[in-house]
């Protein structure tokens, strides 16, 4: 994750200001949406179209950058059971990053079931490797405690070093039911890069995941809604609890993406505590102005 120091901040600011003065057209040209919903396609196609609609991969990944993709690989389940992010969707994202000239594209998750089982049975390890990613297992000694200045209850927590060191972070959750937060989407998926005993976060869960997400912000969030798990999440296992929605919700605004994706689970975002708290605390808006949202129906 890029840490911006003051000098860079001023430089960037001045450049942007100069650019804005010199090229008024540039601002008008930036009418790219910040949230897109693409439906009715296969997983890889959904992801490709979503990124295209957001302005293309070049908006997020520049040549030579290090990219980290964080799918949900948490469970020893196969793709049809919709407990982990769709492997084809992950592979597509990897492919695009590689094509954009990324130096490395790394895929990892700190799993809940035994890691090798999850990586293999989710299909993600194989698909992502084939697409050109480094698929890494978590090494427990590679967590680094970070400060969370805006945290209310969580003031610091160990985070995986690869996340801190990557220039581009792409959060790729799958939309699932979850008994505590009602839904598990991008905010909850980010817990997968945390070390230590994550179970301790489940008390006052909403406040705590907002704390964590106040310190870690993805460049891009892509919610896999190809298959969604409507009940008995986040593990699932029963195919009757899975609905095929063939949808991807993607965007640069993590709060808005989660709010929109909650709809896939037939949950009103107003009923999701952490979204309300995140908005109150200024992490982003749940609803973006319509001009920044684009909906695409394929095929």
């Amino acid at each position: 994750m890029q840490r911006i120091n003051r000098r860079d901040f001023i430089k960037t600011g001045l450049t942007a200001a100069a650019g804005a003065l010199l090229l008024p057209g540039a601002i008008a040209a930036d009418s790219r949406p910040d949230l897109v919903v693409v439906s009715n396609g296969e997983p890889a196609e959904l992801v490709r179209q979503a990124v295209e609609a957001l302005g293309g991969i070049g908006r997020f990944v520049r040549p030579g950058q290090t990219v980290l993709i964080k799918p949900n690989i948490g469970w020893d389940r196969v793709p049809e059971q919709a407990a982990n992010t769709n492997p084809d969707a992950v592979a597509q994202m990897v492919r695009m990053c590689v094509e954009a000239g990324a130096k490395t594209v790394r895929v990892l998750d700190r799993t809940c079931n035994q890691a090798r089982r999850c990586y293999q049975r989710s299909g993600i390890e194989e698909a992502a490797k084939k697409a050109g990613a480094q698929v890494r297992h978590i090494i427990e000694s590679r967590f680094q405690e970070i400060d969370i200045p805006a945290g209310e209850l969580v003031k610091s927590w160990p985070v995986y070093r690869d996340v801190l060191e990557s220039e581009v972070i792409i959060n790729m959750p799958i939309a699932k039911h979850h008994s505590i937060s009602g839904v598990t989407l991008g905010f909850k998926n980010f817990l997968g890069v945390l070390g230590s005993d994550r179970g301790a976060l489940h008390r006052d869960f909403a406040t705590k995941i907002v704390d964590i997400n106040s310190a870690l912000r993805p460049t891009l969030t892509i919610v896999d809604g190809y298959r969604v798990l409507l009940r008995n999440g986040p593990t699932g296992g029963n195919l009757q609890d899975v609905a095929v929605k063939k949808t991807v919700v993607a965007g640069t605004e993590p709060v808005a993406v989660d709010a929109r994706a909650a709809g896939l689970l037939e949950v009103d975002w107003r009923d999701v505590d952490y979204l309300r708290i995140a908005e109150q605390r200024g992490l982003g808006k749940c609803l973006l102005e319509p001009a920044r949202v684009k909906t695409i129906q394929l095929g």
């Binding site: 020893d76 809940c112 079931n113 979850h178 008994s179 505590i180 179970g199 489940h202 008390r203 006052d204 869960f205 008995n232 986040p234 593990t235 699932g236 296992g237 029963n238 609890d241």
Partner: peptide
């Protein structure tokens, strides 16, 4: 009297 449910979250039975 605080929510937790980590056990329920991890329970692998398809019907919990």
């Amino acid at each position: 009297h605080e929510n937790c449910l980590v056990c329920e979250e991890h329970c692998p039975l398809p019907e919990k």
